[in-house]
């Protein structure tokens, strides 16, 4: 359960102030996978980072009655001079997870072999992504946040990701942002649309999609 209470948030771009949320209250109930739709620049990624807690709201309060992940596959916190192993241990410590267990999972999952002991700045982007993805899945979160499923690795690795993800989803929920309607359909059972400073929930993905298409059309008008 993640509860937004009277939350306002805006961000500034070169073309002016963009309002993401305007005094909005809603909650993500436990037990559902929610796909968030919205036009370009509506602030979907900002919303996700707010859910994660990486971005503070301008006003209002966000309460998390769950252990919420950082956005899945986010490797931005990796320190280039430290080895993969040290970076993984760091994140595990921060989240109070069992470092040894997390490390075992990541080593097995990301298939980096001896590279796990090399500085992360020697990794290819694909390797770094595998490490980040493995790390996200290794820690036991109640809610996983996914910002645009990145197409990492070859078909085999993708299958592995999907399977590991499915395993997690038996106990955990997902909140996902994607431009790809089929991806949202594959992973989510509820839809929500970020629009005009509010988040509107729909009982089904198809309903949300139809509304979203109309909305995108209205934006053309």
């Amino acid at each position: 359960m993640i509860i937004f209470e009277d939350v306002s948030k805006a961000y500034h771009t070169r073309s002016g102030k963009k309002i993401v949320l305007d005094n909005a209250s809603f909650d993500f109930p436990a037990g559902y996978n929610v796909g968030i739709l919205g036009g370009n620049g509506a602030g979907k990624s900002t919303l996700l980072r707010m859910i994660a807690g990486a971005e503070p709201p301008d006003r209002g309060r966000i309460r998390r009655k769950a252990r919420v992940s950082f956005p899945l596959g986010f490797g931005g916190t990796f320190h280039g001079h430290l080895s993969g192993r040290q970076n993984v241990a760091f994140v595990a410590r921060v989240y109070g997870a069992d470092s040894a267990k997390v490390l075992r999972f990541v080593q097995d999952f990301s298939e980096l072999g001896d590279y796990i002991d090399m500085p992360v700045n020697t990794y290819s982007s694909g390797m770094a992504a595998k490490l980040a993805f493995g790390l996200s899945l290794a820690i036991d979160f109640d809610v996983y946040l996914v910002d645009e499923v990145t197409e990492v690795g070859d078909a085999r690795f993708r299958r592995k990701c999907a399977e590991a993800f499915a395993e997690r989803m038996k106990r955990s929920d997902i909140i996902m942002v994607s431009h790809n309607s089929q991806t949202i359909k594959a992973y989510c059972d509820r839809g929500a649309i970020l629009q005009d400073g509010g988040l509107r929930f729909f009982e089904s993905i198809d309903e949300a999609m139809l509304f979203h298409r109309r909305l995108m059309g209205a934006a053309n008008a």
Binding site: V149, R158, R159, A162, E163, A166, Q182, K185, Y187
Partner: peptide, 12 residues
Amino acid sequence: VLFQRQDASVGI
């Protein structure tokens, strides 16, 4: 399409 098939195999 191939990527989608993989995603769909999750079987939400």
